[in-house]
Structure formats: C-alpha cells, structure tokens
Amino acid sequence: MTISKLLAPGTRHAIPLVLFLLVGFAAPLLAVIGFSFVPARSFSLWQNWGLGNYIEIFNSTSYLSFLWSLGLAAITVLVLAVICYPIAYGLARVFGKYSTLVTLLFTIPLFVSENVRLYGWVLFFIKNGVLLGTLKSWFGIEPESWLFTNGIIVWGMVYVYLPFMLFPMTLGVSMVPDQTRDAAFDLGATRWQVFKEVELPLSMPGIMIGFLLSFVLAVGAIAEAKVLGGQQIIPISHDIEIAFTYAQNWPLGAALSVLLMLVVGTLVLLVLRRFDLDAILGRR
C-alpha cells in the first residue's frame, strides 16, 4: 500500500508545511530545551543531561530579573490600556475621514528601527539635549535629567508597544454595532452604563488580543532598559543575552529561556482560560 492511499490528500499536501515548521520552528525550540539540560558552560548537546542549570537559577537572584520583566510588562500594558482606549474609540467612531491619517501617524514610525527611535529619545531627554537644553536656554531652569531612570524605561516601552495595543483595540471597538449602543440609550442607559455594559464587553476580543500581544512582547523587551534606562534595570531577556555572550554559558541561557517561556506561556494560558477568545469572538 502506498503512502498516497494511507494519507488523505489534505494531510499529504500539508506535509511540506509541517516539515518546514518542524525544521524551522520546532527544531530550534527543541535545541534550546535540550541545551538547558546539558552541563553549564558546555557547547554540545550529547552529554550527561541533568537539572544543574535549573538548580543554579533557583539558587541565584535570577528571580529579580523575572520580576522586573513581568512587572514592567504589566505596568506597560496597564498604561497602554488607558492611553489606547480613547484613541481607539476616536479612530473607530470620531475621527471619520481623518482616521487614516491618524493611523498613518502611528504606523510610520514602525518603518524606523526600534533602536534608532530609542536613540532619538536619548537625544531628546539627555542633559543639555532637546528638552532640557531648550528649558535651560529659554526659561533658565535646569531640572534633573530623566534619562537612565526607571520611569523612562516604562515611557520607552509604552512608546514602542503602543501600536500593538492600539490596532487590535481599534478593531475591537469598531466591532460594537451602532444599533446595540442606540438600543441601550433608548432603553434609558446612562453614558457610563453604555460603556460598562455594552461597549466594553463587546470590544473585549480586541482589547484582550491587544493585552496579550503587548504583554508577551513587553516581557521580552530589552532595548528600552538598555538604551533609555542605561541598564538601571536588568530584565530577564538581558540576563539571557549575558549568558549567551559574555558568560558563554549557553546551557544557563537556554534554561532561563525555557523558564521564561513557561512563565509567559502559563500566564497567557490562564488568561485565555478566563477569557475564551473563541467564545468572545462568537465562534461558539
């Protein structure tokens, strides 16, 4: 019996793609997982596997970096939610023909590399730079520089991840049918009730996707803390980078990466269980 008789045509035609995914996606991931079990500071997968790297991580202060990454990502997502909802509402309902222009203003910076944009902010915020230099020469005031502080890291993350929250959210808000809103008003709901009972729940799919997307990206952020924060905070992604470069400890870096994937994966799954995306998207 030939393979063509064993497998349905759909499965057969999916084989190239499955192979491509196995080689391009699963294999590197498996290699990282494999490396996390080999002895520290070694470069070959084929040796005695053990849990040494994980034990080392649990005995170290690595948890600080995990907490910083998760904390910064959580703050970023909250700030983004507050900033993006009004803009998303505007894009979907208020700006009308100017929506395209506003959307373009938010997307054009994406064509410039993140690092270049962050270095631009350094020149803006640095002592005697665009902001402080102008304040000094025009008004004679010299406030302390904000560069290389924790606050500026959050600023940078909010700035970089804004589109990833804004556009799913805009989609969410635009999914709310006008009729439901009108019906609520007709039935005597206040503006607040319409927002709370109608608009927010109905735009939740977009909001949730925005939350998840910006959170997952922000947990892996590294450039903001490095460039704007002057490494005043060492997020977990930076710890991983140090392990793979200066420390030449690939197994430790791999174990940190696996733990990060587990932590983020668990959090995302928990959220997805609480908010069933399929259900809120109306597929079931």
């Binding site: 500071r41 005043q232 420390a247």
Partner: peptide, 18 residues
C-alpha cells in the same frame, strides 16, 4: 574569569532599580 563574571552579573542584577 567565569566565577568573577557570575559574581559581577549578580551584582548588576542586584543594583537593578537604582
């Protein structure tokens, strides 16, 4: 070097947050 680098990386991490 490996031992000292690990100590230094931990010091960097401990200084996180100012």
């Amino acid at each position: 070097y490996d031992k000292l680098l690990d100590v230094m990386t931990a010091a960097k991490r401990a200084a996180s947050g100012g």
